[in-house]
Amino acid sequence: MQLSDRVTGAVLMALGAAAALAGSRLPAVPGQDVGPAAFPLLIGSGLIICGALIAFGIGRSFEVPEEPAAGPGPWRLGGLRALVPPVLLLFYVLASERLGFLITGAIMVFIATLALGARPRLAVPLAVVAPLLVHLAFYKLLRVPLPAGLLSAPW
């Protein structure tokens, strides 16, 4: 997701303007000059200035460009694969209560391993072992209330 400085600068300016505007509408504390509005207003205006400077390319000379990533991955739509981890986390949020930690975790690990280009020979055992170990450590030792769902652990 490489965006030009103009785009990111404009986004920051818009964000700053929104923050300043929303901040200035906050109700003031009666009898005081400075209230909850002051800080968002300051930050918002700071963001507008920074966004403008970035959009005009000021400060570029300090940047060291990242080494370009070598060729596309094994799949097409390579860039979209970056979205796999957040989507899997979203899946965890939606499914863990119903399916339980072990099944949700196994599905997450399985998909993530495949997305990283591994063969099922690695993905299947990892998807079985990793959630079990994590469950053992967090549920048994650290007493995190992980949901049991459909499949409860033997301990």
Binding site: L89, L90, F101, V109, T113, V144
Partner: peptide, 29 residues
């Protein structure tokens, strides 16, 4: 490919553990 998925799982569980709510997992994402 065997390390990163485990890290991802730990992120989910670790975030959940800090407040025992799923909203933190959403925040992590």
């Amino acid at each position: 490919a065997s390390v990163m998925p485990v890290i991802l799982l730990l992120c989910a569980v670790g975030a959940f553990a800090t407040g025992s709510n799923l909203f933190s997992v959403l925040m992590v994402a």
